[in-house]
Design a protein around this nucleic acid. Sequence first.
DNA 1: GTGACAACTTAGCAAATACGGA
DNA 2: TCCGTATTTGCTAAGTTGTCAC
Length: 763
Amino acid sequence: MKLEKEKHDRREKKKSRDREEDSELNGKHKPSSKMKQSDSRSGVCSFERTLSVSCEVLSNSSLMFMSSSSAGKCEAGDADTLEDVKVDPDERNDGRQESGSPEINNNSKEKTRSKSSKERHNHKEKSERTADARDSKQEGHRCESEAPVKMKKKRAKDEKSSEKHPSGKKRKKTSSEHEKNKKIKKDGDQEKKKKDEEADKWKWWEEGKSSDTQKWSSLEHKGPYFPPEYEPLPDNICFYYDGQPVKLRPATEEIATFYAKMLDHEYTSKEVFQNNFFSDWKEEMTKEEQKLIKTLSKCDFRQIHKYFVEKSEERKNMTKEEKQVLKEEASRLLEEYGYCLLDRHREKIGNFKLEPPGLFRGRGEHPKMGKLKKRIQPEDVTINCSQDSKIPEPPAGHRWKRVQHDNTVTWLASWLENIHGRPKYIMLNPSSKLKGEKDWQKYETARQLKTKVNSIRKQYRRDWKSREMKSRQRGVAIYFIDKLALRAGNEKDDESADTVGCCSLRVEHITLHRHLDGQEHVVEFDFLGKDSIRYYNKVPVEKQVFKNLKLFIKHKDPEDDLFDRITTVKLNKTLNESMPGLTAKVFRTFNASTTLQDQLNKLTTEDMTVEEKILSYNRANRAVAILCNHQRAAPKTFEKSMQLLQEKIQKKKEQIEEAKKELKEARKAHKDAPSDKSKKLLEKKEKAVQRLSEQLKKLQLQETDREENKVIALGTSKLNYLDPRISVAWCKKHQVPIEKIYNKTQRDKFAWAIDMTDENFQF
DNA sequence: GTGACAACTTAGCAAATACGGA
DNA sequence: TCCGTATTTGCTAAGTTGTCAC
């Protein structure tokens, strides 16, 4: 309620301010006829994040803006009417410094570079999505697939020869050999299965682009898998109220178990969580239960909690056989529900299991945390499949909410979740054609931005000096989106956590510093972004941006919108006019992929070992993760595991010392009394020292990598922002096995890129 | 122009599984 | 083989964007 009122007040204030601000700009603003262009990224940009990462690449990542494409020099600030606003204690004088001349040098360099990159791009463009793509793909595919075939042949030969005794005579098989043979047979079966799967794989990327509106011609599936019904607690396990055991009816008890299972989680200590849970729980109670259970503080779930902890322990301690049974059951489920037939191809489904009931766990300070997520019934589910397909059967005694045959959408089933009343979907796995094609398209749009970005930057620079407030705000917002990879930032309702993106930034989220840490015109950002992850960054911006920001916050309260004249819709509309398909999020993809490409080019040299190259790759990846603010909680065992690793390193060093001593002795012995034996011993000791040194180096690289990765999540950017063709080309060029960069899931998702990319690909 | 809604992508956390050293 | 740790996978929340009705 309070939030709603605040929001309403803000809107009212915004309206009354609108006329005032525009008249101010129109009355006093004198547009300069001498306006020149400047690069948004040419200022020194040092990202001082809360992430304390000691990584050389970090400074590279912050500097990357300096080397990115630029568009000319901007003579800022002659067109404004600005008073000094109380922003920051040291933010008093109206600095008159102009952007420095090095930018001009950058420009000329950039022009040459962008020309060649354009040529490259044109050349590449031709080879994309055409028959040419097929050719280059086949080329790439040969490289990829030859090695495994050779390996398999070798293995098959080895297997064959292992049938025979070294003497050449056949001998009786022992029981352990039987086991071994069984294993070999099993491995062989698996290999055959793998081979079949490989052959079965649909290379949709060879078939040319499909329609944008019609997503499929035929779609058949089994419908969603429903989680098992609730199993009531055994009689000896009780819920206690006010010290007394109480037997709840199963529906009430089930909800109690949701809370009980979470007892050792921080959530249950939060008041909002407790209140939401208790009020939703009460609604599900019978009259009698409601009468008895009045307050959560008298509820005791500890016995139930203990019961589930024990059950979980039991599961962990199951025998191999028991675990195998479970595994088989899971793979049976996957086999039955986990795939669909899309245009006659078997495709993997992403989330075929319906979400089980439980308590809603929002991120950050979510006002709805603890609310009951109800069990989804077949009557809640809409099925989408083709008309002539076998319609999935609802569970016995039930019926579907609806069965539709809409081939303009990609989902197989949907339902409304009860927390926000929003639809949820069952969709295909990222390895599917529908997802893969869209992904490919996404990266192509980002590559297209490369050719347009200079003119877009010129335009937003012009907007910084526009007569219209909304154009200025839009210009600065796009600058932030481009320079800092901020998200668009839609308006949010009051029933979610208070997080923001670019367009929804409020005055309180920035602090302006005329001078800070030896830099000028520094904007300090501090806000909660998606998933309530904190974004903290101090960024030097161009003088005109700084001036505009002062103007935007003038006469505003901290909780007012910084960009009160623009919305994400309007911003995206403008972007779309500059380039069809361009939206705010394309900049994130574009900047992420560009950064990866630049960093890889910079950080990889041919004389590196594979391990060193991988460290370089991770550093490049990390630069992107920092740019996109992909954070993670430090692993709980981080300190401990680092300590172990350091101990290992120490031990290895001692081993090397020891080995060196032995080597010295062997040398002496060989010198004193040379013989074949002493020579062999010497060689052996030399090899030992060498081997240990290599092991030490590997451990040290591991240590650096882990330390630098403490609070940074690499996966998100790898999966969503980095054009996989960059990584594939890099692997091929530098002879790094693709498995070192992408795990199985990632290889499945990026099968299209692995198959079609050759080593010359540049983003 | 705006808001509601639908469809889709992006995101971090935690459980499950794989891996490697004793 | 066991055990502890690292990596992968699954889950689902939380964003963005497009469309439609008013």
